Every structure is written in structure tokens, then in C-alpha cells.
Amino acid sequence: MSNWEIIFATTINEFSDLSDVEEATRVTLRLLFAAMLGGVLGFEREHQGKAAGLRTHMLVCLGSCLFVVAADMSGAMDDAMSRVVQGIIQGIGFLCAGTIIKGEHLSNVRGLTTAAGIWFTAAIGVAVGLGKEATALVSTGLALIVLHILPLLFQRTDKTDH
């Protein structure tokens, strides 16, 4: 076998994790769905003028999904998958802590909703990665209600109280 044949065979072997069409389709659909759901939440946040918008939410959801899908493809047992999810939660917690800004007074804290939204977006990515797409879709809808509809209801209440 020539060096080029060895290089070619090694390259093919290195990219063999999606060797059958069914698995490749499943992984692709999960990653695309995670990116879409993260994008829906990110679009809402960006529309509200928040710093963590479309790209941030898409990447958080996509990354969380990828960690779970990759662990699942490697045959991770329940305990190992639990550790993967715990790692995602810790990593996202660190990212979220960076979005919270505390002013001089305790009442002057900003970024809590952004942090919670990023954390929740990661949870949606985990759900998609685990193959719980319907749960992820319902969760995304509920998050949109919390982020977009509830503030509108409170604005109307405030206007009628004055």
C-alpha cells in the first residue's frame, strides 16, 4: 500500500462516525432543529435589543445538542451522559455569570433574564440532543411566552393602574 493510499484510508476512517445514512440524517436533523429553536429565542432577544441575541442563542443550543449527540454516538451509558449534561450546565453557568452586571445597589442588577435565557436555551439543546424534539418545541414556545407575552401583559396592567 502506498503512502497516499494509507493517507486516504486513514482520512476515510477518521470521518467514519456518520457511516450510515440513518445516523447521519438523525444527527443532521437534531443539530438543525437545535439551531432553529435557539435562533427563535435569539431572534426575540435581539429584537428586544439584548446583547445575547440570535447568534449567541443559536450557538448555545447547537453546542449543547452537539455535546449530547456526540456522547450518545460514542455509546455513553446513562452515568456518562449524566456527566456530559452536568458539564454543559456548569459551562453555561459560567457563560451566564458573565452576562450579569451588578450596579452599586443590590436593586441595580442587569442581565438576569439574559443569563436565564441562555441557560434555558442550553436545556433546549440538551433536549433536542436526547431526541426529545417535541419537549424542546413546547419549551421554546413557553420561553417565548415568558419573554415576549408576559412583559406585554405587565405593561397593560401598569397602564391601567395609573
Rank of each mutant, 00 (worst) to 15 (best):
E104G: 15
V69G: 00
C65F: 05
V138S: 04
R83N: 12
T113R: 02
I145K: 10
R83E: 14
Q155V: 10
H148R: 14
V69Q: 02
I145C: 10
L144Q: 02
H47P: 04
H47W: 15
M73D: 06
L142P: 01
E44P: 12
I118L: 15
L106W: 14
F120S: 15
T56L: 08
G125Q: 04
T135L: 14
E133R: 07
I92Q: 02
R110F: 14
F94P: 08
L144A: 10
G63P: 00
A70V: 08
A97P: 02
L59D: 04
T140W: 11
Q90E: 11
G49H: 11
A71T: 00
E133N: 13
T114N: 09
L95W: 03
Q86L: 12
A52T: 15
W119T: 04
L54F: 15
V84C: 10
M81Y: 05
D158Q: 12
G49W: 11
S107N: 13
D158A: 12
L142G: 13
V68A: 01
A97K: 00
N108L: 14
L147S: 10
L142Q: 05
I118S: 08
G129V: 01
R45E: 14
L59A: 10
N108T: 14
A127Y: 00
Q86M: 13
T114G: 02
L153N: 05
V60M: 06
T113K: 01
A97Q: 06
L137G: 06
G125A: 06
E104T: 09
C65M: 07
F43G: 09
K132Y: 15
S74G: 09
A134L: 13
A116R: 03
H148E: 08
A115D: 02
E44K: 06
L142M: 13
R55Q: 09
